[in-house]
Design a protein around this nucleic acid. Structure first.
Lengths: 221, 221
DNA sequence: TGTCCCGCAAATTTCGAGATTTCAAGTCTT
DNA sequence: AAGACTTGAAATCTCGAAATTTGCGGGACA
């Protein structure tokens, strides 16, 4: 497999601990290539936000902060709601069919995980099917830019959620939520779609009262 | 100046014609460095969507299609409206002050352009002030991710609008529209903010009835 | 005349060595 | 003892040459 694709896979699947250094000189051993080639992949990944890059200080896996997790989740809600609603407006029956198919595959894998427990092979299948479901959801939105930005955020989301993904926390909830999204799509119900997407993600938002870092000193100080 | 920053500047200011090849071997002459260093910058810029990259086929300036222009404009409306409204909710008087200052600088430059006509030095000043105004607008939104994605879209927008920017078409309109955005901000009026932002960009959207590429054969065929 | 195949030139990518910068430990000064 | 300076090893970045791939043009063949 390509260095870039495989590094991205590892970055979003919890192969690297948060904050660790990513040295091209070391990683080249995992691929049969030079450090320059790895460096090139890391540079591209850093432009996508999956790797932190500081000039003259190399590459790092990003830290996992609650704020970052919240931010990325919010962004996914925004882009995915918008994209899904546009897709409802433009999609038509062909889109509904594709989404139903994608959901069927995903749901099948999720059931097997629920029955057999997690395993590396099922995890890989799930990762592919989950991405395909959410990509299909937006596929008819009519905006290549929106689809592209959503994909960027999708990977960042997987990256900060990697620990939870690994254990399949919330598997039962996810099964229901994916079904709710599919239903909203085939019913052409935009409001239900926004509700379903919010429901799917809101447990990863920070509680509303949580510390807001933006304004200077706390008003209650 | 850094190769990466300068290439980005040139990419969004119309230095390159749409669709032309960008060869590291050639561009290295503009900077006192090797082709590898230029290649590295181009790779990062391609991850940001300002350069098209195809494996084994090198780099190109993206083509300018009406669809792409429409897409990017739509995305800017979405992100900028969302960010500005969040900033209204969280901003406070310090944010309003910074926005007023940024607007003052921008407005001053725009007036000078209206009086003296465009010129390379004013154009450079304008580019900096316009970016700063729109960045300040979102600066209090509380989401680093939203700010980052907006910046990505901002540069893409400038890239597809470069021809118009160069001639300062719509200068008079822009002056009014920037003022309207500032007003909505200091009044804390989210609905007015959304209206103002839409107004600022809608002339670059495709007309509502225009060809929608997504569905298969035209219904009217 | 048109098509296919081969080979050459140009473009792109990969590579490892050399130059530069960072980081940490140790030494000196106050 | 705290802080500033020195020093060397390790990490990072730059570079141009070598290897690979692409694309084009000429010639063979139907």
């Amino acid at each position: 497999m390509d260095v870039f694709d495989d590094l991205r896979r590892r970055l979003v699947s919890g192969d690297f601990a948060y904050g660790v250094k990513l040295r091209a000189e070391v990683l080249k051993n995992d691929y049969g290539c030079s450090a320059s080639t790895v460096r090139e992949a890391l540079l591209r990944l850093s432009a996508m936000g999956l790797v932190e890059f500081q000039e003259q200080r190399g590459f790092r896996m990003p830290d996992q902060s609650p704020q970052r997790q919240h931010d990325i989740t919010e962004m996914r809600i925004l882009l995915e709601s918008e994209g899904a609603c546009r897709a409802i407006r433009r999609g038509g029956v062909a889109w509904e069919a594709r989404l139903t198919a994608a959901h069927h595959k995903l749901s099948h894998i999720e059931s097997r995980i629920a029955a057999l427990g997690p395993g590396d092979d099922l995890r890989a299948l799930w990762a592919g099917a989950e991405l395909e479901f959410h990509q299909t959801l937006l596929s008819a939105c009519g905006s290549a830019t929106l689809i592209e930005m959503h994909l960027t955020v999708y990977y960042r989301y997987r990256q900060v959620q990697a620990e939870k993904d690994r254990k399949f926390l919330y598997l039962a909830e996810n099964i229901q939520e994916h079904a709710a999204i599919l239903n909203a799509a085939v019913n052409g119900d935009e409001a239900a779609m926004r509700r379903s997407i919010l429901k799917h993600f809101e447990r990863h938002l920070m509680p509303p009262g949580a510390a807001a870092p933006q304004p200077g000193p706390s008003l209650a100080g």
